[in-house]
Design a protein around this nucleic acid. Structure first.
Lengths: 150, 150
DNA sequence: TATTGTTATACTCTATAACTATA
DNA sequence: TATAGTTATAGAGTATAACAATA
């Protein structure tokens, strides 16, 4: 019989604990740059790619079209992305980084580097590689290819 | 010089991706039991412990008192926790699981087991142990002892 | 004055579904 | 009819800060 005191520690629980701490710290950092974490993921997805319709972004970010639409509105207001109407389909358009957005991505990436260093720097290089490997395996075997957002 | 195409994959980013997928799947599972993930964490924190004032819970869950207050309201409405006024301090009270809450925790824990198995079962036992170890190291060295909530 | 806890306000993220315009 | 995208609505989570009651 299983008594309640034997509640196991769940890997998912522990991962959430670490991941949330990392993300919250990162959120503070990018806030100083005037963007949210979701906006960073959005900008990152557009970096070095051809302009993309929102529907494609929704798929690659693992978000609904409605959520993408709201995010895109904010980024347009901030002047970080641009919208280009499709010449062939009057319903459709593509999104791409503006010059300002283009310039902002490396700045945000540097903050992500800093944040990673602060949290994962406590691991030995071998441990850090191990972790990356395990996360990659988990993402691949679970069919993930998208960006997490919250 | 660093060109934009060399944007590294961040460990924090990858972890968030995996963690979010795990959490979202878990959220679906506990939803069937009528609770949210935050409520599960709350109930779990009260399991097998002495009654706790909300301020202590806030600390151990890494949430503000305001957030705990809202969560506690919901759990009281659902009849899963109980409130006991402090005899010595008329401002204070303690929270504990109701009989129903007590009974619910193992059910939710079983769902967490299932969820862990579904996601981390793709790892070999050795890899799974490695991951647990790494997450524990990260949590400890980052001063985390709390539960993530979002 | 300081502390316990609640409440008010506000924002992000998310999802569902209704809706508009075009195909 | 189907598709691209927007908008409306709602709910969960979070934080800050003002507030009430008590210490």
């Amino acid at each position: 019989m299983t008594s309640v005191s034997e509640l196991t520690d769940h890997t998912g629980f522990r991962m959430r604990m670490v991941s949330n701490a990392v993300s919250q710290a990162f959120a503070r950092k990018v806030e100083a740059e005037g963007v949210t974490v979701a906006e960073w993921v959005f900008l990152r997805a557009l970096y070095n790619t051809a302009p993309m319709p929102p529907s494609v972004l929704a798929g690659s970010m693992g978000m609904t079209r409605g959520a993408i639409s709201k995010l895109a509105d904010r980024l347009l207001e901030k002047g970080l992305i641009e919208r280009t109407d499709s010449p062939s389909d009057k319903r459709a358009h593509s999104l791409s980084l503006s010059a300002e957005g283009q310039a902002k991505v490396p700045v945000l990436a540097a903050l992500a580097d800093e944040n990673d260093a602060a949290f994962f720097g406590v691991l030995t290089p071998a441990e850090h590689r191990q972790l990356d490997h395990l996360l990659t395996v988990l993402a691949e075997r679970s069919g993930l290819r998208a960006a997490p957002v919250d």
